[in-house]
């Protein structure tokens, strides 16, 4: 069942992105920004948590899930450390993904060269 929900919710979130791409003039870069910000806001309002409980990776793998981790991390850190947590919480919670992106990004850039699309 986990996988069905992950598929449906994850796919559904991507469809929202596709509708924005196809019907508005938003570029992919802008859509990514919108999704991450929406994720932060929804997690702050407590609306994204239920989706994560239901769909697992279906809600955390899309970029809204990245926003959810950022928002949730900030709120939890404020609970533990006070105001300073607002600054440290978000990045701490997502440090793994960001560091991986930088390291793998650099590594693969060294190894591979881009090819022309045919």
């Amino acid at each position: 069942m986990d996988y069905v929900w992950a598929f449906v919710i994850g796919g559904g979130i991507c469809v929202i992105g596709q509708l924005l791409l196809s019907l508005t003039r938003l570029t992919p870069a802008r859509i990514l920004v919108v999704f991450v910000t929406v994720g932060v806001v929804l997690s702050a309002l407590g609306l994204y948590e239920p989706l994560v409980e239901l769909a697992g990776a279906g809600a955390t793998v899309p970029l809204t899930g990245f926003g959810y981790s950022l928002g949730k991390g900030a709120i939890e850190a404020v609970g533990e450390k006070g105001v300073i947590g607002a600054f440290t919480g978000g990045i701490t919670a997502t440090a793994g993904g960001i560091a991986a992106a930088i390291v793998f990004g650099y590594l693969f850039a060294m190894i591979f060269t881009p090819k022309t699309k045919m």
Partner: peptide, 18 residues
Amino acid sequence: HFSTAERQYRNPLEMGGQ
């Protein structure tokens, strides 16, 4: 040239999208 124009005016070649 397709590839020089792409990187000057649009996106990196390996970036996925339609």
